[in-house]
Design a binder for these strands. Sequence first.
DNA 1: TCTTCACTTGACATGGTGTCAAGTCTGGAT
DNA 2: ATCCAGACTTGACACCATGTCAAGTGAAGA
Lengths: 194, 194
Amino acid sequence: MSSEELNTRTRILEATWKLLEQQPNKDVSMSAIARATGITRQAVYLHFASRTELMIATTEYVDEVKGLYQRMERIGAASSGIEMLEAYVDVWGNYIPEIYGIARALLRVKETDEAAAAAWFRCMDCLRDVSKQIIETLEQEDKLTNALSPPDAIDMLLVMLSIEQWELLTRDCGWSHQKYVNEMKKLLVQSFVS
Amino acid sequence: MSSEELNTRTRILEATWKLLEQQPNKDVSMSAIARATGITRQAVYLHFASRTELMIATTEYVDEVKGLYQRMERIGAASSGIEMLEAYVDVWGNYIPEIYGIARALLRVKETDEAAAAAWFRCMDCLRDVSKQIIETLEQEDKLTNALSPPDAIDMLLVMLSIEQWELLTRDCGWSHQKYVNEMKKLLVQSFVS
DNA sequence: TCTTCACTTGACATGGTGTCAAGTCTGGAT
DNA sequence: ATCCAGACTTGACACCATGTCAAGTGAAGA
């Protein structure tokens, strides 16, 4: 039964993803998604109960396809805190542009929808774990700055590498993606390593 | 003639401001603003051509009432780059919570409206000037980190003190307003001063 | 052949922005 | 005293979004 059903579902997810990548700052409508999928608007609701649910599902779909967690393994393999930090910036900094469209959409929807906020914070929690791992490694090596306590350093690292921050630097300040990665590495080492 | 007219206009601006402060993450509607002002929705359009225009006018109104530029004078009066940096965090960090509601609204509207984006970037340009002044002072004192070039440092300082960053730390990480100011001062000195 | 499931067609409710026309009410000028 | 202009109201309408419902179609499988 579900081969065909899954197919349509996946086609909706792909269309949503594609539209969001094309116009990350527009509110892509259910009609536009249906049109891009080649079905009616009502049919979308046969697969996703609401716009929010579709956005959450698309986020999960993209995460699955793009395999962030696999890429993150590089970080644990690094042999020092500084190397971990740099690997983090590399992996994450290269990941953001690939998921920016859907991430922006989820960020917008999160403001008014609890389920979306929960989904967003689930993602944030994963990133926080990575951040924590790095700060703790730096601390064990006695290389963590004493300007910040370890818990505060975890928060700060997370926020420094947030999508919002990336957006400000690349969109508003005109930094290239490569410049973001390079400068961010330098700044983070300067900020967190004593 | 305009005493009465100005009065209603100001009442609308005050109502808009108040509603946005109460619910910074909801899209306050024109009906809600009219209701809070005690006039009809249509009457609001007699004073402001569109929702965007009202948001921009409210931003300007709040800026005028709150007098950011006056407060900023403290920064120029500081006797060293580090003191300027700390004064900036003090002034700006205490300002953000007072204007957060309308700032958030303008940020939302900026995504889809060019006029709102222009208004936003006008504000950003003022802040950039302050950021530039501080980085240049640090550079003249030979105290600027060599991890970043001066122009990049200006961008980075601006982004570190962005409303988005403040929002992440105080809302998502649960930092108190005071903690934000204290930790940010320490981190910025660590990051930008060699 | 009959049923089930995915999808379509077409309608409707609700709530937002923005516009229009006609009416009311008040203060000020003649 | 009257008349007028300007501020505001009333009540409509267009348009577009999300979300819901009911009835119909069409094809694959039992």
